[in-house]
């Protein structure tokens, strides 16, 4: 794994970002002139009331969508001018997502789920070894590799999801309430895992409603009505 970053630089920069969802009943202002710098190697907890724009923020950083106004720079690349394919490639190579509902592909086995991002890159040499490696790193035993996601516990599924997010070795992990569907003890083991990954150099942004979970992070940001409070 990459060594801890000695000279911090903003790996994510949001400049005056606004996101408007046009809806039939009227536009929804999800993000309102939000600016934010995230240094490489940071572990940030994002908190705020429901509907304040936390998931929207994470999705924009993850290049799943582009801001309505303002600019986002990921690893030095401004996203607003990028084509859909370029955005996708940027996401594929730099960002790992972890969701509250795990979001594993039900038709694929554990191993295939983890392998999927590699296949999108044309299955580089040593893919299988890389999958076993990350699955081992998140604490899953090989006897589970051939199971379907539905045959696993919530904690195990989230570990698979984290392994999948890690397999391309992205610099950034975006976690949207990763412990929201887990009991406290399982949630804590997942947080310990994320903490370890952060110490290995991953930049982590984590959305949570739970102040105890936020305690694992090095910095907490509060979002209210679409901007940093």
């Amino acid at each position: 794994m990459s060594p801890p970053v000695t000279d911090p630089y903003p790996i994510i920069r949001l400049e005056d970002v606004t996101k408007v969802y046009p809806m039939p009943a009227g536009d929804v202002l999800a993000l309102d002139h939000l600016s934010l710098d995230v240094m490489a190697g940071e572990f940030i907890a994002i908190m705020g009331p429901s509907g304040s724009g936390k998931s929207t923020l994470l999705n924009l950083i993850g290049c799943l969508d582009v801001p309505t106004t303002g600019e986002i720079v990921i690893s030095g690349r401004p996203v607003r001018s990028l084509s859909d394919d370029d955005l996708t490639t940027l996401r594929r190579d730099n960002i790992g997502f972890v969701f509250q509902t795990f979001n594993l592909i039900p038709l694929l086995s554990v191993l295939e789920n983890v392998e999927f991002p590699l296949l999108l890159r044309g299955r580089p040499a040593g893919s299988r070894e890389r999958c076993t490696e990350v699955l081992g790193a998140v604490g899953l035993t090989p006897d589970l590799f051939t199971h379907r996601p539905s045959e696993l516990s919530g904690g195990q599924q989230q570990r698979v999801a984290i392994a999948r997010a890690l397999v391309n070795d992205p610099g950034i992990l975006l976690c949207d309430e990763p412990t929201g569907n887990l009991d406290t003890r399982t949630g804590d083991t997942i947080m310990a895992l994320l903490g370890a990954l952060n110490r290995q150099g991953k930049t982590i942004l984590l959305v949570t409603h739970d102040p105890r979970i936020a305690g694992f992070a090095s910095r907490t940001i509060r979002i209210v009505d679409g901007s940093v409070a």
Binding site: T88, T89, R91, F97
Partner: peptide, 16 residues
């Protein structure tokens, strides 16, 4: 639909 969202979040392009 959900699965499409997932594989897009993993970096699958429209063509894929």
């Amino acid at each position: 639909t959900k699965e499409i969202g997932i594989i897009r979040s993993l970096g699958a392009k429209r063509g894929e």
